[in-house]
Simulated assay, not measured.
Amino acid sequence: MTETATAPTAPLRARAEIDLAALRANVRTLRALAPDAALMAVVKSEAYGHGAVPCARAAVEAGADWLGTATPEEALALRAAGLPGRIMCWLWTPGGPWRQAVEADIDVSVSGMWALAEVVAAAREAGIPARVQLKADTGLGRNGCQPGEDWAELVGAALRAEADGLVRITGLWSHFACADEPGHPSIALQLTRFREMLAYAEEQGVRPEVRHIANSAATLTLPETHFDLVRTGIALYGISPSPELGSPADFGLRPVMTLSASVALVKHVPGGHGVSYGHHYITPGATTLGLVPVGYADGVPRHASGTGPVLVGGKWRTVAGRVAMDQFVVDLGGDEPEAGTEAVLFGPGDRGEPTAEDWAQAAGTIAYEIVTRIGTRVPRVYVNEEQSG
Rank of each mutant, 00 (worst) to 15 (best):
G295S: 04
L253R: 01
P243R: 04
P293E: 07
Y296H: 10
A249C: 11
D228S: 10
G274M: 13
T288Y: 09
G285L: 10
I282T: 14
I234M: 08
V275S: 04
S242I: 02
P243G: 09
T288F: 05
L222Q: 04
S240Y: 02
E244H: 06
Y277N: 13
S260Q: 08
D250N: 05
L253M: 09
R302G: 04
L289H: 02
L245F: 02
A297M: 14
L229F: 12
H273K: 14
F227Q: 13
V294N: 04
Y237P: 13
H279F: 15
L245R: 05
I234Y: 00
I239A: 00
T225F: 01
A297T: 14
A264C: 03
L229P: 07
T232K: 02
I282C: 02
P248L: 06
P284C: 05
P255S: 00
H226D: 10
P243W: 06
A264H: 09
G271K: 09
Y237E: 11
A286F: 03
P223S: 05
H303L: 10
I239T: 03
V256P: 11
L245M: 11
A235K: 09
L265V: 14
F251K: 12
P255Q: 06
G272C: 10
G271M: 14
H280I: 07
G238D: 13
V230D: 02
L259H: 08
R231V: 05
G246P: 03
R254C: 10
D298Q: 11
D250Y: 00
V266Y: 08
Y277I: 14
I234F: 00
V230R: 05
T307S: 13
V292T: 12
G272L: 11
S262G: 08
T221C: 11
G233N: 00
V266H: 04
A261S: 09
T232I: 15
P255M: 01
S260Y: 08
D250S: 10
P270C: 00
S276I: 12
G233S: 11
V263T: 11
G306E: 03
S247W: 03
V300C: 03
E244T: 07
R254W: 07
G295P: 12
V263Q: 04
V294A: 03
S262M: 12
F227H: 15
S242Q: 05
V294F: 04
L289E: 08
S242C: 00
